[in-house]
Amino acid sequence: MTARRFILEGLLRGPLTEPAPRADETEVRRLAARLDAAAQRRLGRSLAIREVDAGSCNGCELEINALANAFYDLERFGLRVVASPRHADVLLVTGPVTLNMREALVRTWVATPGPKWVVSAGACALDGGMFAGGYACERGVGEVLPVDAHIPGCPPTPAALLAGLIALVETNAGR
C-alpha cells in the first residue's frame, strides 16, 4: 500500500534528474586518438564499468555510488556498473594501489576482455596522493596498469565523475 503511494507520488512530482555535465571536447579528441575504429564499433555507445577499490579510503566509492542516485542517473548515458570484470569495458580504479591489492587489480584487468579502458579516479589513484612514499603503496594506478583517463578530486564529485565517463562514451560513439 505504502509502496504504491510512493510510486504514484514519484509520477506526479516529476524527475529530480539533472541535465548532463558536458564532456570536455579536447579530452574526447585525446581519447579518440587512442582508440581504433574497430574498437569503436565494438564498444558503441554503451559502456560497462567495473569498479576496483585498490586502496581507497572509501570516499571515492561513496561518490561513485552516488552516480546511481536520481540526480545523476548514470544509466541514462549508457553507462552500467557490472559485477564482473568479464562483462566490463572500463575499469574504474580508485586508491593509491596498495601492495596488498596490486595482484587482485592486475588479475581483474587481465580478466577484462579487450578493447578496454582504464580510468583512474581520485588524487590517490593519480600518484598515490597522501599515501605515496610509504612501505605499503604504489604511486597510483599508472604504476601498475596503462591508464587512459584520470578524473581528479579528493574525492571526485559525482559531476566530475560523470563528465569524465561521458567523455569515454562520446569517444566510442566515434564522433
Partner: peptide, 26 residues
C-alpha cells in the same frame, strides 16, 4: 587496503597529520 597510515603519520606536521586522519575512512 593497508596504506601504512601509522607509518605515514610519524613525522608529519599537524596539518598533514590531520588530513591523513581524515582519510582513514572517508
Amino acid at each position: 587496503v593497508h596504506r601504512g597510515l601509522e607509518g605515514l603519520m610519524a613525522g608529519a606536521d599537524l596539518d598533514r597529520a590531520a588530513r591523513l586522519a581524515g582519510r582513514a575512512s572517508g
